[in-house]
Design a binder for these strands. Structure first.
Lengths: 249, 249
DNA sequence: TCAGAAACTTGATTTAGATCAAAGTCCGAT
DNA sequence: ATCGGACTTTGATCTAAATCAAGTTTCTGA
């Protein structure tokens, strides 16, 4: 199944940027109407099914892209096959690095994914000429760096329980669930195995920790991919993070 | 000892950018002579002694800076005191985030450190007007992101031995040692405790792994802060990384 | 020059999570 | 409707690294 971003057919859908779900968070967030139309002119949508590889490590990539919908993962592998997920790509996240064709990890769709892709050459030209795009890209990169550092703390020092609680809290925070709902339901976008890979655990440990949080009434599963947070404060308490968190949004 | 970057006296040394050791790698790397003189006008050197805190988490910072010499660390702490180092700052690395006063980690000097500091306001202005600076800053941020992802793999999946070997190999790679020397000697810029914090281990495990690599003849210590790599291939083999590594430099 | 502290090493013991193993559940395809 | 495989749960056992505990070496400052 040698599908990848370079060979997948382009789908020029009719979606207008105005009504794009990630319009105000993605790399185009700061663009005005004129700038947006420049991006619009070079964009192409591509779709991937759950499980499809999107990019492979070391392979040259002709595109840069924003995730429009769905969830993709970045992962790295040691020579003997141990793998670690090094990033989750959720809607509005950006894929690719200007000025470099190769990436140092594999990108895989874990749910059905739609990408908004930009051909490298014209995008890089636009980047030079459009500070609003360059600035936003920098901001996204720095946000990812912050997230990567949070994850280093998790991987290096948190217990299995804290890792699971942090993961659930992350999904909750990045989901578009109705704000002040006390009981929140969210789809788990990955298998236990993939969650384990993200958290530096084994799938058995992930399963046990889910079971234990469930027994304590902190969470519940209506089905194994659909999670309910029954006690958000207890969950936050279990993350090991400082309670402060900074100013209210 | 409430020393920090905002209160430390500025030392306007006479060093000219031309002869600066990080001229071609730091945020100024792409600047031409004119651009360099703009940076020169707003730069100030600040010195820190080994052990000094440079910045604290959450405190507003009036400066952005490049490391000129010495080694500093970024670290994060959980509420109960467990800490994880989330970055090593070596000469040419950049500190600070345009557009945000606060940082999410502590910065500490582990050796004597000299920073080349830029006042936030004029630097951000310059950033807007000077694509060569903005581009280089983006490149540095993306390099750090790559490094952070490598470290996530290390923290999540490597054994203690692999972590130590990777760490030594990193120091070797980033040191300016004479290129094709078969036996290389390098100073360890940190204590065992700090190394443990960087690698997600305890200091005892760090010590044991050093001892074991020493017994095998892979490394040697002339003094506990001075390391000799006796068998670089064996060391690289012990990192768990792919042998390929990409093109020769 | 020496006392005390900080940094480091090494050994003994414990433990969180990995590994090994066996069922149980769900889902899509015939 | 049911078969087969992918995914998940739970239990038993093992182990790498943490923790606990002495010592030893090196550095610092009086």
């Amino acid at each position: 199944m040698q599908i990848n971003m370079n060979t997948i057919p382009k789908l020029k859908t009719e979606m207008r940027c105005d009504s794009c779900p990630i319009r105000h968070r993605a790399v185009c967030a700061r663009c005005d109407a004129d700038e947006l139309s420049l991006l619009d002119a070079i964009k192409t949508y591509r779709s991937f099914s759950a499980g499809d590889p999107i990019l492979w490590r070391g392979e040259p990539v002709e595109f840069l892209a924003s995730v429009v919908s769905g969830v993709a993962t970045l992962s790295k592998t040691l020579e003997d096959g141990r793998t670690q997920m090094v990033g989750l790509l959720l809607p509005s996240d950006f894929i690719g690095r200007p000025g470099r064709m190769e990436i140092a990890f594999d990108v895989t769709a874990t749910t059905d994914v739609v990408l908004c892709c930009f051909d490298r050459k014209p995008f890089e030209k636009l980047l030079m000429e459009t500070p609003h795009i360059a600035q936003r890209l920098m901001e996204l990169a720095l946000d990812e760096l912050d997230a990567a550092r949070d994850w280093m703390l998790l991987l290096g020092r948190k217990t299995a329980r804290e890792k699971i609680a942090t993961f659930i809290e992350l999904l909750e925070r990045r989901s578009n669930s109705d704000a002040a709902q006390r009981i929140r339901t969210l789809p788990l976008p990955m298998t236990r195995d993939q969650i384990a890979s993200y958290l530096g655990l084994t799938l058995e440990t992930v399963s046990r920790q889910f079971s234990s949080l469930k027994k304590e009434g902190v969470i519940n599963f209506s089905d194994r991919r659909t999670l309910t947070i029954c006690d958000l404060p207890a969950l936050q308490d279990a993350t090991g993070n400082d309670a402060d968190g900074g100013l209210p949004a």
